[in-house]
Design a protein around this nucleic acid. Sequence first.
DNA 1: CTGAATCATTTTAGGCTTAAAACAGTTGGC
DNA 2: GCCAACTGTTTTAAGCCTAAAATGATTCAG
Lengths: 172, 172
Amino acid sequence: MDEALPQVIDAETVVSERPRDHKAELRLWLRLLTCTTLVEDEVRSRLRNRFDVTLPRFDLMAQLHKAPDGLTLSQLSGRMMVSNGNLTALVERLVEAGHIERRSSGSDRRVVNVVLTPAGSAAFARMAGQHEDWIAGFFEGLSETDIEHLMALLGKLKASTRAAIHQKGPKP
Amino acid sequence: MDEALPQVIDAETVVSERPRDHKAELRLWLRLLTCTTLVEDEVRSRLRNRFDVTLPRFDLMAQLHKAPDGLTLSQLSGRMMVSNGNLTALVERLVEAGHIERRSSGSDRRVVNVVLTPAGSAAFARMAGQHEDWIAGFFEGLSETDIEHLMALLGKLKASTRAAIHQKGPKP
DNA sequence: CTGAATCATTTTAGGCTTAAAACAGTTGGC
DNA sequence: GCCAACTGTTTTAAGCCTAAAATGATTCAG
């Protein structure tokens, strides 16, 4: 590519001459977003059509499934990366649906514990199995090594992004 | 783990004995989601804090920027992959902010055309430049070949997912 | 033992999103 | 010309999401 450059221009100069062409990164970001949206929207739609459940509710049930002894609302909001106030209504609807149960903690009257009911647990097991198969279906065109490479590259991206975020705005 | 399997079971049989271990795909999907959410939330937050604009409004302005002659609401909803009813309020707020302008089409009294105002156009140019730099910053930890590989692998994933979606539910 | 700080949750106000119904304007077959 | 089908937009009802304020419970320093 740079073979025919005049000899007086060294590599550093060439770089500094195009300081701001970030189109490749921008295109990559758009593609990343497209892929995620594609999968996510389809998952939402299948959960809704086949199990009459929304993705946030599924997520909440997944968290409770991983914690059979239940979780407080704060623990839930932390794990779901969702604001605290959000959970109040979400929990209320899952209670109405009979999937989960509120339990007040004996020792601290501020905290609300939430647990899957037996019915909710069974419903979640059914949904989670299907969900896993759906995801496998979406990734079917990728080989095992594709999956490994993608996993590694996304790991790198995750680290890079976190670094960029925490560099600019870590609480002083 | 399976080292002590009876000798009569060959590799193929072993594979068929675990027909449904899709954990690698599931983990990859979670990581993909994490990366996208990480970038998206940070972009939202910066747009909000530095330009007092939401991501949907930025997206809408980006579409209008690419179409200097303006777009109808239906064209906009198609390009933004968003429902039609969604746009009514979104457009209304951008009109209030002075970023865009409604123009009724001369020939068809049903359609509403929308165009960036000069102020909106200038505001968008400023935001888009910053936005590109932010994305470049998030991807800084990736080499040029990382970016190429990621682009290719995500292209494969996009194709695979589309195939899986259209296989199960294309309109008959 | 008491008041300030802290903590868990809920409420509030505002925005985004969808699907489906309602409205309004246009078009084509008769 | 007229009406039925179609099209573009808006409205409605319901859900998800956040930040910030409010409420209620706990803890701890003095």
